[in-house]
Amino acid sequence: MTTVQVREVVEQLVAAGQWKPGGPEVLVVLDAGYDAPRIAHLLSDLPVEILGRLRSDRVMRRPAPPQVYDPKGGRPPKHGGEFVFGDRVTWGTQQAVTATDTRLYGKATAQAWDRLHPRLTRRVAWLNHDGPLPIASCRCHW
């Protein structure tokens, strides 16, 4: 239902001339109750950027490591190591960090890791997906 509604709004913006090719993508902001990777996949044909809050117990995957010849054979991995939101040891080095002083809360720091992706499974939203499950690249900010 959410993707149907967002699709209608974006199509109305395009029809009204509020968005034109070459312009910035329409930013769609979602709370943690929405499956942001699934919504991004379903709206991939539209000029949208999905920004979703993820649950603090979520686990993401890093990109697959470079393929190395293995004489034993086998399929190369699709995913790299885990990035566990609740475990700083798994975070590694961030690609960007910024800090600012706020009037009410003191220093606020934002860190970003690029090319993380959720490891999708054929449950719930992806149960009836035809073909291999996509690898949706994400930028995670903490």
Rank of each mutant, 00 (worst) to 15 (best):
Thr3Ile: 13
Val4Gln: 12
Val4Asp: 15
Val6Ser: 08
Val6Gly: 05
Leu13Lys: 08
Ala15Tyr: 01
Ala16Arg: 10
Gly17Glu: 04
Gln18Glu: 14
Gly23Leu: 02
Gly23Pro: 00
Gly23Ser: 12
Pro24Glu: 12
Pro24Val: 01
Glu25Gln: 07
Val29Trp: 01
Val29Cys: 08
Gly33Ala: 12
Gly33Trp: 06
Tyr34Ala: 14
Tyr34Pro: 02
Asp35Cys: 12
Asp35Trp: 10
Pro37Ala: 07
Arg38Phe: 15
Ala40Met: 07
His41Gly: 07
His41Val: 10
His41Tyr: 14
Leu42Ile: 03
Leu42Ser: 08
Leu43Tyr: 05
Pro47Trp: 02
Ile50Arg: 00
Leu51Met: 13
Leu51Thr: 03
Gly52Leu: 02
Leu54Asp: 00
Arg55Thr: 07
Arg58Gln: 09
Val59Gly: 04
Pro63Leu: 05
Arg75Met: 08
Pro76Lys: 07
Pro76Tyr: 07
Glu82Val: 09
Glu82Phe: 11
Val84Gln: 09
Val89Glu: 13
Val89Phe: 06
Val89Gly: 02
Gly92Trp: 01
Gly92Arg: 05
Val97His: 04
Thr100Arg: 13
Asp101Tyr: 04
Arg103Met: 06
Gly106Phe: 03
Lys107Ala: 13
Ala108Ser: 08
Ala108Pro: 01
Thr109His: 01
Thr109Gln: 09
Ala110Gln: 11
Ala112Val: 07
Trp113Met: 07
Leu116Cys: 11
Pro118Leu: 15
Pro118His: 05
Leu120Ser: 05
Leu120Arg: 09
Arg122Gly: 03
Arg123Gln: 14
Arg123Thr: 13
Ala125Ser: 12
Trp126Ala: 07
Trp126Ser: 05
Trp126Met: 09
Leu127His: 08
His129Pro: 04
Asp130Thr: 09
Gly131Asp: 04
Pro132Glu: 13
Pro134Asp: 08
Ile135Ser: 11
Ala136Pro: 02
Ala136Arg: 06
Cys138Val: 10
Arg139Phe: 00
Cys140Lys: 00
Trp142Ser: 11
Trp142Leu: 15
